[in-house]
Design a protein around this nucleic acid. Sequence first.
RNA 1: GGUCCCAUCGUCUAGUGGUCUAGGAUAUCGGCCUCUCACGCCGAAGACACGGGUUCGAGUCCCGUUGGGACUGCCA
Length: 495
Amino acid sequence: MGDQGEIRVRFPPSPTGYLHIGGARTAIYNWLYAQKTGGKLILRIEDTDAERSTQESIQGIVDGLRWLGITWEEGPYFQTAYAEEHREAAQRLLKSGHAYKCFCTQEELEHKREEAKRRKEDFHYDGTCRNLSSEEIAKLEAEGRPYVIRFKVPRGPGGVVFEDAVYGVIEKKYRDLEDFVIVRSNGLPLYILSNAVDDIRDRISHVIRGQDHLANTPKQVLIYEALGERLPQFAHMPLTLDPQKRKISKRAHGEVVAVQYYRQRGFLPWALVNFLVLLGWSTSDNREFFSRSELIDAFSLAGINRANSVFDIRKDDPKFFTDPKALSINAHYIRTMPLEELLPYVEAELKAAGLWDPAFAGDKRPWFASTVDLIRSRYHTTNDFADLGRAYFADDFPIDEKVLVKNILKHESLKDWLPLMAERLQSIGEFTAETVEQSIRGLAEELDIKAGILINGARAAVTGQAAGPGLFDVLAAVGKERVVQRLRAVPELFA
RNA sequence: GGUCCCAUCGUCUAGUGGUCUAGGAUAUCGGCCUCUCACGCCGAAGACACGGGUUCGAGUCCCGUUGGGACUGCCA
């Protein structure tokens, strides 16, 4: 498509807030396509909305992309740097007769719009200024009347036709298109123009973007044609909706749609990418998990779906703070990824929670690794390591009230048995899951009680929780000293 | 309102006229495993929006209806 057949795609966010799920997904598709084809991804910041664009937002978007592992070959470029080029393109369109100056005021247009609405007709600019003579134009300009520049849409039968890689042939009749504004009365070009001009300058070969741009694409096709440029390949991707089928947005949904939120809540970046890519794209073998290279290998525009998909966020669901599938994919990676790769994430979590001991990266490294490995299969986010896993890394951990009652207080004798267990364990030479099990089962037999009572009581006392890995492994992981200490303190729980 | 797009289990999806009494994943429920929870394994329940065509045959093609979405701005 490009002049040299070079594949060039772009991700052009407008920096008016954080990077959200939808934007990230668009970036991912573009990135994958570039990776897949050996092409280049260009990051272009569309900051022409001076009112809303912020430096902070630009940084947030860049950080978000980096965190996700999305790399780009060029940019960030800034749209505002090319304003002159956009104006120049408009002048060319004016000279070539593809555009004209329109002196209608906003008030006049508003009035006509209202009137059309009242008559239940749809309003299209009526072309009042379309055929002004050069004398009339000169006169109005001499009067200092402000004007916008409108694109002169061909009249008569026929229409714009282009082929979208996802949606197929799209046709829009000329009569359904009005002479749209391309330059404001203050001289600033509009998105519809700037965006096309930038894509031309950046030699974009494939425009992969949200389906929300599909309806405006015919206008851009017209601009390309009027400028004498070759069309890029368009590929519109389905939108991501909320459970009420509303387009997700920063304003309406807040943090659950922010990439940053997933980072904070303990998502692995690749798990998020894996989840997001599946929203609107799939392989014919319906695979769910992809390594980076597998994904790049499997990705294709042909696999993009046409129907919008729902991001199943659940407001106020105590069990799932976001789409259950996203969580399950994250959990899958947490329990199956190479342990070495998971460790840095856990380290970051522990540091953030103030639980990190430098020795975990030194002397205690083997212990740290095996402990993480022991508990990871039941965690869904990396936050869980510092939260649910606190008892393994700290001595101050909460004991769940219900668990305390059910597994300890209910059996009054545990007030004596658990300290007794502490003494038995204290005397063990080599403190391993096997020796610990032997000791505890032996104790249960001596006391003539079910081992489960001792086991569940010990788990509650040592971890504060009713659920967890096999107790003997837990005790071995927590270590003799701390286990003995926690078991000895059990009587205090009865106070 | 107009234009465009879309329509398979709750959700993500496979499915390109016959092998679909519709497959997978997730979520839900049950079972196995077991000291608990998770993992894992086994099983259950759960969908082709509706109506017409075309065809020997339709989830798959066509039309309509319904429903949903996007666009429709001197925002991007």
